[in-house]
Amino acid sequence: MATQIISAIIVIIVGVGGCVAYFWGANRLLELVFPARGTSGKTAIDNLRRQGFIRPWLFVGPALLILGVYLIYPVVETLRLSFLDRGGQNFVGFDNYLWAIGDREFRISILNNLLWLAVVPAVCTFLGLVIAVLTDRIWWGTIAKSLVFMPLAISFVGASVIWKFIYEYRAADQTQIGLLNAFVTWLGFEPQVWISIPFWNNLFLMVILVWIQTGFAMVILSAALRGIPDETIEAAVIDGANGFQIFWKIMIPQIWGTIAVVWTTITILVLKVFDIVLTMTNGQWNTQVLANLMFDWMFRGGGDFGRGATIAIVIMMAVIPIMIWNIRQANREADGG
């Protein structure tokens, strides 16, 4: 253990030192090869231009290398693998995709993912907006926000343990130690094994992600609400609008862009939801989702990389529209500024 700590510290020093050495050394080398000082007129200008040409690539070089190896190459490779067999040796055409369409578990995953997509972003955004509006008008709003925000720091696995404890089931004649069943029996109903009730169990898993992500939606939307100019609301008040009208007709339209950002961010997160399903049910009782199915196929029976890659591509295809929208949005901003 001690050696592990020491080696970690050494790596930090070597890693950071290496980075510094690279950037400093590369820059130094550039100045030595194309000296700008101590040379006369035209050479100095030429060398300065050459430096200006090369230096940006020295700066972005390491980042490009890592992005290339860890993100760009894998995207291409995953696409290629999805057309190959389990070991990645033989070309099988669209067999993996046809398998996916015919596979019961895959279809369940698609339906569940659609259910997650329909429920979680909407609920998080709605609750986040409501809490942002409510907390903005009380003196202890900051503390309240902090507490609603807190689950964002908790890992999905930790959150799963927390909620598994809430859903804990005991036979009807025993004392219920799970909060939900205790509440249900207190109301006079029978205790339930919540995470194995078909269809509804998906909702109980979604509750976990909603619990985590509502704080995120709340913080972003709260900042957007504060950015609304006072005049628009004052004008509405003078015109005799009530609170409800002000909220729907004045405030919501002005933060529409932010709502879209929150919605898409949570949508991407939902597409990748993995830890919660793995730890709560591991896909049993019809709760399977794509990300967990993909992980499963990576290792099931020694791993089927073709099918795993195919599922990854399906997730990726769902993300592509958002990706294009993001890039266009960023380009528009760049052109505007």
């Binding site: 200006g52 040409f53 230096r55 940006p56 690539w57 700066f59 972005v60 490009l64 992005l67 860890y70 993100l71 760009i72 190459y73 894998p74 995207v75 490779e77 995953t78 693998l81 991407i268 597409l271 990748k272 990300a291 993909m294 992980f295 990576m298 990389f305 795993g308 890659a309 599922i311 990854a312 591509i313 997730i315 990726m316 993300v319 958002i322 990706m323 993001n326 890039i327 960023a330 380009n331 760049a334």
Partner: peptide
Amino acid sequence: MRFPGRAILIAVIIGLLVVPLQMSLIPL
């Protein structure tokens, strides 16, 4: 810094922001 390809690089990075981790797992 001004250099050719800068705008494309920025677009690529914004695109990579949303690439699901799942895409990288098997090749890596």
